[in-house]
């Protein structure tokens, strides 16, 4: 591994490291589809927050194909590419009677977190 030097900092900061993957993967869902987040409870890394698990929402936008963090975190390389969607969950679906009036949550979810509902 090379030594990190001050000269390398501007390039690193400006370049970044996108998790987007330029591969052709078919989406499992399309905008407008109703989906239910899986009730998974792994002890390893996941980006599916507990408050979303088992809840039903609607696909609002397809962001394209990204590495899947749950497997990438374990392997150390970008892998398992799949579509990420912005999914809209109504406040009442997440929080029942405690929901704020006229409020919702949009969250980015991977194909492997979702089933058709």
């Amino acid at each position: 591994m090379p030594t990190l030097t001050p000269e390398m900092v501007p390039g690193l900061v400006a370049g970044g490291a996108s998790c987007r993957m330029d591969v052709d993967v078919a989406p499992k869902f399309k905008v407008g589809d109703t989906v239910k987040a899986r009730d998974i409870n792994p002890v390893s890394h996941t980006r599916l927050p507990r408050y979303i698990r088992g809840r039903t929402g609607r696909i609002a936008r397809d962001h394209g194909v990204f590495a899947f963090p749950d497997t990438s975190a374990a392997s150390g390389t970008h892998c398992d590419p799949q579509h990420v969607y912005s999914v809209r969950f109504e406040g009442s679906e997440l929080w029942g009677n405690h929901a704020n009036a006229n409020a919702c949550v949009y969250i980015d979810l991977f194909d492997d977190y979702l089933d058709s509902a």
Binding site: C19, R47, V84, N102, Y106, D108
Partner: peptide, 10 residues
Amino acid sequence: VRVWDSSAEL
């Protein structure tokens, strides 16, 4: 009110 939970890559 739309809350955006940016827990993935965006």
